[in-house]
Simulated assay, not measured.
Amino acid sequence: MSYKNFPMVSNVIFGRGSFGQINDVLAPKRLSSKAPFIFLIDDVFKSNSWLTSRISLAYDDKIIYVSSAEEPKTSQVDKLVEDIILMTKEKPSGIIGIGGGTLLDLAKAVAIMLTNEGPAKDYQGWDLVKNPAIYHVGIPTISGTGAEVSRTTVLTGPERKLGINSDYTPFDQVILDSELTKGVPTDQWFYTGMDCYIHCVESLTGTYLNKFSETFGDMAIELCRDIYLSDKLSEEEAQESLMMASWHGGMSIVYSQVGVAHALSYGLSYLLGTKHGIGNCIVFDHLEEFYPDGVKEFKEMKARHGIELPKGICADLTEEQFNIMIDVALSLEPLWENALGKNWKKVMTREKVKSLYQKM
């Protein structure tokens, strides 16, 4: 049997207020006065001096504000890389992503594409990256996606939604400061937290499960239950717990895989532009057949927090549009094999996938 030798994030700072150490962390990593640090920051922080004032820009360092209104695209990565090359005299000292999963995925992808030729779409898949990425730092401001710890950067390309899965993808440095997650709207807090919960359910019930994945998944799912089904945590404790649930949840799929919900959600995202967290929730709500216990608990969490999911998003789709979503979903073979085993194609026919989408 061949065992995967996966890299992990090599340096992590955890603690409330730890973002204040950002300048000390970056200083020794500067390559020269002409090699700037490029900060990719969610544009919701554009007017938030509380965050940006703590970043000391020097030499040619730049902040680029990026909208997270849409899922990250390969074309967006290519444009950012082009802009950075044009604005810098030398290759940057590093890329720092500050925001949710969208910004973290963009930061990872840009760091890779600054050292690898061609368009980002050519690297969607498993282990296609040839050259190490430049130094890159992830600082999440919302918890749940696991993007801060994973070896993938999920991108929507011209033909599919698929990650750049590579040993060069993980961040060199992560700063986990739960103070940065305060003020996240309730629905967004729920959707990203459920991304963590759902991929743990998929990992823990999948055929790829092993003790490594199970240990992290069990911890993450217990933390999610504490946060979303009990009143025992203070607001600050809940923020810290969700940050660690996200980390452990991301670790649980490093050595396993996600499943049915993510595969179907990728189809929604590719065709309709549905954001990843809410897409997972919309899909998971209809997957009792595959994850009966998880879906039951998810519905309890949804009711407890007064979350109303969109309905009928596939009601007016044409046959051609259904086929596009079905193609995207079924192309994610490792996810289906994890969920349903090696004979998954006998279970998950095109008709079956369409019938699931028709419920949404």
Rank of each mutant, 00 (worst) to 15 (best):
H305N: 13
E214C: 01
D24K: 10
D177G: 10
E148M: 05
P292E: 12
V77C: 13
S269G: 12
D172V: 07
Y291T: 09
E90W: 03
M360E: 03
A35Q: 03
S265W: 00
Y270N: 11
V12N: 04
L332T: 03
D122W: 01
A58K: 13
I134H: 09
E117W: 00
F216W: 02
D42I: 03
Y65N: 09
V174H: 08
G183N: 09
Q321N: 08
Y135H: 13
R54G: 06
L268V: 12
I98L: 03
I164G: 05
N338H: 05
S355Q: 05
L176F: 14
P185S: 12
A109K: 09
Y270T: 07
L128Y: 08
S32E: 09
R30V: 11
P28R: 00
S166Q: 02
Y291Q: 03
H262L: 06
E202G: 07
D226Q: 15
A263R: 09
A27E: 15
T205C: 14
W126P: 06
S213M: 01
I142M: 08
E71F: 00
I326H: 03
L332K: 11
D83F: 00
S178C: 15
I253M: 12
V347N: 12
R16Y: 02
E214L: 08
V66T: 10
G183R: 00
P92A: 04
T207E: 02
A111R: 04
V283Q: 01
M87E: 12
N11D: 10
R225L: 04
G217T: 04
G100T: 08
V137N: 04
D43I: 02
E337W: 00
C196R: 05
N210T: 09
E300Y: 03
Y291F: 09
M113N: 11
P170A: 02
F212C: 05
D293R: 12
A339R: 00
I98H: 03
N131L: 02
L287D: 09
H136D: 09
E308L: 07
K130A: 14
S331M: 07
S265R: 00
I142S: 12
Q257H: 15
G341L: 02
H276C: 13
V353Y: 03
M301F: 01
A35G: 08
A261V: 05
